[in-house]
Simulated assay, not measured.
Amino acid sequence: MIVQDLVETKEYFTEETKDDFFVIYEKFENSDCNCKGNMLEEIECDDEEVIQILQGNPECSCSLRNVKSYRVGQQHKTVEAVLAKIKEEHQEIFK
C-alpha cells in the first residue's frame, strides 16, 4: 500500500487568478507500506510534486473541482516550467 504524506503546500498566482480559481502546489513524501504478521515494513519511495488548477463552486464554497493536474518531473522538469505552461495554456483562469 502506498502512503502519501503531504509535507509542503503553496498557492501560486493568488492575486492574478479569478476569484474561483486556485493554483496549488503540493509535495508528498511517499512510502510503500506492507504488513507481515505483527510487523509493518515501510520503504521510502520517491517524493512527488503536483501542481493543480482547482475551480471553486460559487454556489457552494465547500466544493473544488480539479481542472488540470501537472506532475513536476514528468513532462515539465521544474515547478517554474509548470507555472509557465499554466500561464500559457490556461489564460481563462486569470483576471
Rank of each mutant, 00 (worst) to 15 (best):
Q55W: 00
L83E: 10
L64I: 05
I43M: 09
E44W: 02
E59D: 12
R71Q: 13
H90I: 01
H90D: 11
S63D: 11
K36P: 05
K85F: 14
F28Q: 06
C33W: 12
V50W: 04
T17P: 10
E59I: 00
D19N: 06
D20P: 05
V72Q: 11
G37A: 09
G37L: 10
E92C: 08
R71I: 06
E15V: 02
V23W: 07
D19P: 00
D5C: 04
K87W: 11
I86G: 08
R65V: 02
S31A: 10
V3G: 07
Y70T: 01
H90N: 07
N30S: 13
T78N: 10
S69I: 03
V3H: 12
V79R: 05
F28M: 03
P58M: 07
C45D: 13
Q4H: 10
E89R: 04
K85N: 14
E8S: 00
T9V: 06
C60M: 13
N34G: 09
N34Q: 14
Q52F: 04
N57T: 01
D47F: 10
Q91D: 14
E16A: 07
N34K: 05
M1N: 10
R71H: 08
I24D: 15
Y70G: 04
S31C: 07
N34P: 03
I53N: 04
E44K: 05
R65Q: 10
V82L: 13
N34S: 15
D5M: 04
A84Q: 00
M1I: 01
R71L: 15
V23D: 08
N30M: 09
V79F: 05
Q55D: 09
E49Q: 06
M39A: 13
G73E: 07
K10W: 13
A84S: 07
E11R: 04
E48W: 02
Y12L: 00
I51Q: 08
S31N: 12
Y70F: 15
F22R: 04
D32T: 03
E59Y: 08
L40S: 10
Y70D: 03
I53R: 01
M1W: 06
L54S: 03
V7W: 12
Q52N: 07
D46H: 04
Q52R: 04
S31F: 15
R71W: 11
C45R: 02
K27D: 12
P58H: 06
T14K: 13
I43R: 00
N34W: 10
S69Q: 01
T17I: 07
E16P: 00
F13N: 02
V23F: 09
I2E: 14
P58N: 08
E42I: 08
L6Y: 02
R65F: 13
K85R: 07
Q75T: 01
K95H: 13
E8Q: 06
T14R: 08
E8H: 01
I24P: 08
L54V: 01
D20W: 09
F22N: 01
D19T: 00
H90E: 09
E48K: 00
I86K: 05
D32E: 13
Q75H: 10
D32I: 02
N38Y: 09
Q74L: 12
N66R: 03
M39F: 13
D46E: 15
I24A: 08
E49S: 08
K85Y: 11
G73S: 05
D47M: 08
E49Y: 02
E92S: 11
K85M: 13
I51F: 12
A81F: 05
F94N: 04
E59P: 00
L54T: 05
E59K: 03
E92Q: 09
V7L: 14
Q74G: 07
N57W: 04
M1L: 10
E29F: 03
K68R: 12
